[in-house]
Design a protein around this nucleic acid. Structure first.
Lengths: 145, 145
DNA sequence: TTTTGTAGTTAGATTTATCTAACTTTTAGT
DNA sequence: ACTAAAAGTTAGATAAATCTAACTACAAAA
């Protein structure tokens, strides 16, 4: 809807809302903050921006929800995350580090590179099943940064 | 010497000084700016910081040089860049995009991931020769961002 | 039902990185 | 040697992302 481009930081917040809703059904400000390793006011400010862009919805003093557009964008980011994490694990990186580094990489790589990584991961591991199993295993933990 | 940690941006400036000196023998403010796609005052401010940290030296109104410590740090960053670029090319990414994405990745990846990438690249391509040939081919071009 | 603690918000400060505009120094052409 | 253009610098503005402190709303327990 609104094409104002997301910053890396806003992408992280949006993705985390999505992850928390998949994991817990509810994305509370406090949990978003804990999971990203920031304080609650930072989350509040980010939510103001995401609301302006029409990506999230929130009744005052309650949990955060995604709009349809927000869902679409968040899913894209999460899929990138899952792809990259799987890729790193395939290279032999430990799960925790793969998760952390995937989180950094997901905002900066060009479409071309993402495509090549997909080609690399694909052959031995059908995409659809990888996505599903990764989402199932979603576990959101506190980020110690 | 001074262990104030470098930001991503300062790492980019430091690395570019090093690249320009390898490529041209001289790192001028104007060329650093052009290569990184920023304006000259941004370079000037960054150089003030890098001087404070003891990583670069500069006579007023002239080119930028690296201190011994700066050389050491810049070489580390550049080696990461070269490793990552080679890695991406091995995955089938085009040279220009590999260069650009390596530039983003070099600041964010954990030691563990870098190690695994090195393992992946190494077998078919001895490290020393890769470094040398990449440095030789160094060509610094304007960044269009 | 009043109180108390937890969750959420708002305001304002700080840091980093960028820019433009205006100024200074150096270099090169005449 | 003088002047004009190019390169470098300084000052001040802006934007993004964070923080702390102080305030508001809600929910649960007494």
């Amino acid at each position: 809807m609104d094409h104002t481009k997301l910053t890396q930081s806003l992408e992280d917040y949006l993705e985390m809302v999505h992850m928390l809703r998949l994991a817990n059904g509810l994305a509370r400000v406090k949990d978003i903050a804990a999971a990203l390793g920031v304080k609650m006011p930072s989350v509040a400010k980010a939510m103001v921006e995401l609301k302006k862009m029409g990506l999230v919805r929130q009744e005052p003093y309650s949990g955060v929800e995604l709009t349809e557009e927000g869902e679409r964008v968040a899913a894209m980011i999460l899929n990138r995350h899952i792809l990259l994490k799987g890729f790193l694990i395939k290279l032999g990186v430990s799960e925790a580090i793969a998760d952390k580094d995937a989180c950094s990489m997901e905002h900066i790589l060009s479409a071309e590179t993402l495509g090549k990584i997909e080609d690399f991961v694909k052959p031995s591991n059908a995409i659809a099943s990888a996505k599903v199993s990764s989402v199932k295993k979603l576990r959101v933990v506190k980020n110690t940064k």
